[in-house]
Each structure stands twice: as structure tokens, then as C-alpha cells.
Amino acid sequence: MNNKINEPIGKYVSQLYRKGNSFITKELSQYGIGSGQIMFLLQLYNKDGICQEELSENLNIDKGTTARAIKKLEEESFLIRLKDEQDKRAYKIYLTDKSKEIKSGVYEVLQDWDSIISKNITQEERDTLVNVLKKICINQNIK
């Protein structure tokens, strides 16, 4: 009989999430962005001009949270919302020059965090970890 206790995966995911949020918030504070808004900017860096609903769906985040984040980013002049020409009830979200100017800095912070957390693991271990995490996300219907 195996007496080894399975360590909870969630414990480590949670610790990394909290530590990552703290690092990213600290590093992005120079731009006035918190870790809660960064994922919205990243989505728009990949595809500018999408509607708020699509943003929520892509991030698997409820519409209320998305609306609050968009409002804060809009107040800080990182985004603008314009009426959708095809659907007058919807808004398309666009990056401003201000958010485009900090893009490389944002990606640099994320790369720094990635380097920190993968410092003592091999490329093979990193690839395996990414593949396992992808499988876990698929199991939970996370894109």
C-alpha cells in the first residue's frame, strides 16, 4: 500500500497566482495598471476592437467584472469604447496610444515573471509543466 499523500495541485497554483499577482502589480504600478486589468489589455493587444462580450468570453470572466475593468482602464485613458456599427446596443473596445506605448513594457514584466518562476527548471520540465497545465485547463473547460 502506498502511504505517500498526494499533495494538492491547487495549493501550488494558488501560491503562484498570488505571488505572480503581487509581482505584476508592483512592476506595472509605474503605468497605473493592476494585475486585474492586465489580462484585458493582453487580449486587446492580440485583437484590438473586439466587443465587451467577446472579451468576457475569451477570458472566461463574468460580464460585470469585465465592465468594471474596462471602466477603470477607460478612466485611465488606456481604452476607448465606441458603439458597434453593426449592433448599436454593443460597444467595441479599442486600445489608445497610451496603452500601445506601454505594450513592450507590459510584455517585459510578464517575461520577467516567467523567467523568475522557471529559473531552476529545464526546458523539458517547463514544456511538460505547460502541457500538464493546458490539460488541466481543458478538463475545466478553460480556454
Rank of each mutant, 00 (worst) to 15 (best):
Y31F: 15
Q30N: 03
I50M: 08
F40D: 01
N139H: 12
I33N: 11
L82I: 14
N139A: 13
G49W: 09
S115E: 15
G49Y: 01
N139E: 10
K135P: 00
T122L: 01
D84I: 00
K72F: 06
Q111H: 12
T128C: 04
V106M: 06
G10V: 06
T128G: 01
I38E: 07
K98C: 02
G36S: 05
K26M: 08
L28V: 07
I116Y: 12
I93H: 01
K100G: 10
P8K: 14
V13H: 02
I24P: 09
E74W: 02
V13A: 00
S104D: 15
S104K: 15
T66G: 01
K47L: 09
Y12D: 02
T122M: 00
E76K: 10
G10Y: 09
D87T: 07
T25V: 04
E101C: 09
Q111F: 13
D84A: 03
Q37M: 12
K88Q: 11
K103S: 05
S22R: 12
E74I: 02
L133N: 08
N46T: 04
L44E: 11
K134N: 13
G49M: 01
C51R: 03
S14P: 00
D97S: 09
L133S: 09
I142K: 07
N3F: 15
K19S: 12
E57Q: 12
N60T: 05
N3A: 12
S29C: 05
Q37C: 12
F78S: 00
L95F: 09
N3Q: 13
N139V: 05
I38N: 05
D84T: 02
D87N: 11
L16W: 08
S99N: 04
P8E: 13
L59W: 14
I70M: 00
S35F: 13
L82H: 07
S56W: 05
K4E: 11
L79W: 04
E57W: 09
Q140C: 10
K92D: 03
E125T: 08
V106C: 02
A90N: 09
E53P: 01
D97A: 07
L73Y: 03
N6E: 14
L110Q: 13
C51T: 12
E74F: 01
A69C: 10
N6H: 14
Y12L: 00
Y45K: 00
I121R: 05
F40Y: 15
D62Y: 12
I93G: 03
R68I: 08
Y31K: 02
G64Q: 01
L16K: 08
N2M: 03
T66E: 01
E53W: 04
E125K: 08
I50D: 06
K11P: 02
Q111E: 06
Q86H: 11
V132R: 04
K71I: 00
I80R: 10
K4S: 06
R68Y: 10
E124P: 05
G36N: 15
P8Q: 13
W113N: 05
K98Q: 13
I33K: 12
E75H: 11
S77F: 09
S22L: 03
D48L: 05
T96E: 05
G105Y: 04
L28C: 13
E124V: 14
D97T: 09
K83T: 11
N58A: 08
K26F: 14
E53Y: 12
S14M: 07
T128I: 15
E76I: 00
